[in-house]
Design a protein around this nucleic acid. Sequence first.
DNA 1: AGTGGCATGTAAAGAGTTACATGATTTG
DNA 2: CAAATCATGTAACTCTTTACATGCCACT
Lengths: 177, 177
Amino acid sequence: MKKKTRFVILGLLRDEAMTGYEMKNCIDLRMSFFWQESYGQIYPELNLMVKEGLLVCREDDESSARGKIRYSITECGQQVFDAWMAEACEKDTVRSEALLKFFLADDRNEAAVKQHLEDFYSQCSEHLALFEKFQESLRGFEDMHNHKYILRMLDLAVRQQKLNCEWSSSYIHELQK
Amino acid sequence: MKKKTRFVILGLLRDEAMTGYEMKNCIDLRMSFFWQESYGQIYPELNLMVKEGLLVCREDDESSARGKIRYSITECGQQVFDAWMAEACEKDTVRSEALLKFFLADDRNEAAVKQHLEDFYSQCSEHLALFEKFQESLRGFEDMHNHKYILRMLDLAVRQQKLNCEWSSSYIHELQK
DNA sequence: AGTGGCATGTAAAGAGTTACATGATTTG
DNA sequence: CAAATCATGTAACTCTTTACATGCCACT
């Protein structure tokens, strides 16, 4: 289970130069469906990657005591990214406490299950709304071709969230009978 | 992100007494869709839980130098489990290298994406087959009511895998044009 | 003047995997 | 009888989160 923080960073920077803070934001908003990173991983990795020549950085704001630091990918970084892209994927790791509880429940826990289902439903709806908003924003561009891969991915994300919503709402109705 | 190993163990033992090895097996075969544990988590936790009075154990096989150890849940363990069931769930953590690659890809990586899609498809088909087999085995019982919660969960798992299969196969066809 | 969001970073704690060691039992 | 699988366990390592520290900027 190798650390993949650097590849996520590299992948994001191919599109545009970003600060560490923006990367974390982008990962949380658009990729949390299948990936997460914390500041404790991002910032140290960013400094390491500059030393290794995968990234270059420039201070945005010379006037401040400690300005924003915006990173860009180097040619070497591109190569490292493409090499990783071609490698086989490790198997997924998923930990969903809600699904775990749904699986392990019995009649003693019916009330708890009901509550968790409602939470699950509202979380999925929120995610769905987020993904659909992102989808719309990408479709607004005329250069849709550039977003071909992301749009395909979003299509899966949206359909999975819809499935989860449908499943949990019908499960809720069943329990209410 | 608290450790939940003990609750998984407790949940499994409510159905039947098991050895640590059997638990790991069961988790890998039936729960890997949304959960995983390793021996390094299970065995030390098992010993701890006996000390805390959540479990009792008996050696299966007195003749061997080191026989199987089969664990059962205590009344106290039941209570701890039910208390956890009623608690709110932490948010999910998911790490899927394949989905990450699908999201970050561009035209330079089309060949890699194709390969990963094929791997993704075959993995999902395998999971689907596994879930369907499990589903069938549960439906064989006359006391289906006992498995109500697991069957509901399996319904979601099966539908998600079907969605993934459908998505990846249509994506593969698109790329082949 | 205070709140909240932007922004960078570190240290310590905690979670989780991996590799190894050991030995029994089953199956071809 | 060799190989695979069953079975338990530990130690070292790696990964990841969390809590904290610092300070800017915009808005009210």
